[in-house]
Amino acid sequence: MIRVMIVDDQEMIRVGLRTMLEAHPDIEVAAEAGDGLLALRLLAKTPVDVVLMDIRMPGIDGVETTRRIRRGHPAEEVRIVVLTTFDHDENVFAALRAGANGFLGKGVGPAELTTSILEVAAGGGALTPAATAALIDHVARDAGSRPEPEIARLFETLTPRELEIVEAVVSGLDNAEIAALMSVSPFTVKTHANRAMTKVGARDRAQLVTLAFRAGIRP
């Protein structure tokens, strides 16, 4: 059973997320919090596997809450998924740097939400096509147009198949779509993606996309 904490200052959003999550037999909503400080207190006494974290909240925001969670809970212990509106929230990238493992839009549907939670809990990262596009857009604004040689050299260590899968990930495809495109199983895709992340030092899919873009890999 995957235990989830929902952190959002809007009760209606928490209700909606809880309803979608609890409809899945392998997911349990173990705790809810309306602000970051309460989330930290609850986390100290309530074991959870995944935190769904809003960015903009009263008190300390989602970025600072994520940073504080990471001080006592490594990614192997607690996974953090940021909830955002993508285009209107620059802070989501600060949250990724603070230790979040991915991000989803607040308008996410039940199937996408539960699939993302299961993927993140298993060690992956929540990064939908819309999220990938938003991430690349912001990275492109911050990064130069030329590839960074040191990062590009990391990607030269990948096998042709691993590089092919990285390129597909950067294009916004999920594991199932990549598997169908390459006529392999989703498990095979996940295995190659995980090996690529290990080789380039990416902790999750979001960081893999960021590094790939800086290495000159474009969608």
Rank of each mutant, 00 (worst) to 15 (best):
H73L: 13
T128V: 05
P160C: 12
G36E: 11
E64M: 10
A31E: 14
V48C: 06
V120Q: 01
I165E: 08
E167T: 07
V166C: 06
R41Y: 03
V4Q: 02
A31N: 11
R146W: 11
R41Q: 15
Q207A: 06
N194P: 09
R146C: 10
A75T: 14
H138A: 11
D87L: 08
K190Y: 08
E119C: 09
Q10L: 14
G36H: 13
K190S: 13
R3Q: 14
L127C: 03
G34N: 10
K45N: 12
A196Y: 08
G109E: 15
P47L: 05
L154W: 09
A196W: 07
G102Q: 03
L163D: 15
T115E: 14
D204A: 05
L21N: 02
V200Q: 00
P74L: 04
A131C: 11
L43D: 07
Q10D: 05
P149R: 12
G201I: 06
T210M: 07
S145R: 15
V29G: 08
V209W: 04
A111R: 15
L42F: 15
L154Y: 08
R195Q: 12
E32W: 05
A30K: 09
M12I: 12
F187M: 14
A179N: 07
R79A: 09
V15T: 06
G109F: 08
P219D: 04
P47Q: 08
G105R: 01
R3Y: 07
K199Y: 09
G172P: 00
L154C: 09
I55P: 01
H192K: 13
P58A: 13
A134C: 12
V92T: 15
R56Y: 12
P129W: 14
F93L: 14
R141D: 11
S183F: 12
G125P: 00
I117W: 02
G123I: 02
T65L: 01
E150F: 09
F103P: 04
E28G: 10
D87K: 07
N194K: 15
I69E: 04
L17V: 10
I55D: 07
R146Q: 15
R195I: 05
R14C: 02
L181S: 11
A140R: 13
P186E: 02
P147E: 09
V209P: 00
G109Q: 15
H88W: 11
D9E: 11
E28H: 12
A130N: 11
L208E: 06
L17M: 14
L21D: 05
R205K: 15
P149D: 10
T132Y: 08
